[in-house]
């Protein structure tokens, strides 16, 4: 078997952002479902949280190839 352990590490490190993204949107959806007029308030917050979590995942992806 050939390959690099980096990708295994990336797979492990992607678990965190995946769970985070799921939780962010779960909270966002239930918030909007309870109070639809709160959408414009919640939307930027959800997107920024998503961006933060996603940045971690992409960091892992790039580092897996760079290192």
């Amino acid at each position: 078997m050939k390959g690099t352990l980096n990708l295994v590490g990336y797979g492990l490190s992607a678990i965190g952002p995946a769970i985070a993204t799921g939780m962010i949107f779960a909270a966002y959806i239930s918030g909007v479902a309870r109070q639809p007029e709160a959408r414009s308030v919640l939307q930027p917050i959800a997107f920024l949280g998503f961006a933060l979590a996603e940045a971690l995942a992409l960091f892992g992806l790039v580092l897996a190839f760079v290192l």
Partner: peptide, 18 residues
């Protein structure tokens, strides 16, 4: 990463009326 997050904030996160 920081710059692109700032860009995301500019585009999507600025102002709750936004």
């Amino acid at each position: 990463g920081g710059a692109s997050m700032y860009l995301v904030w500019l585009r999507f996160g600025r102002g709750s009326t936004g």
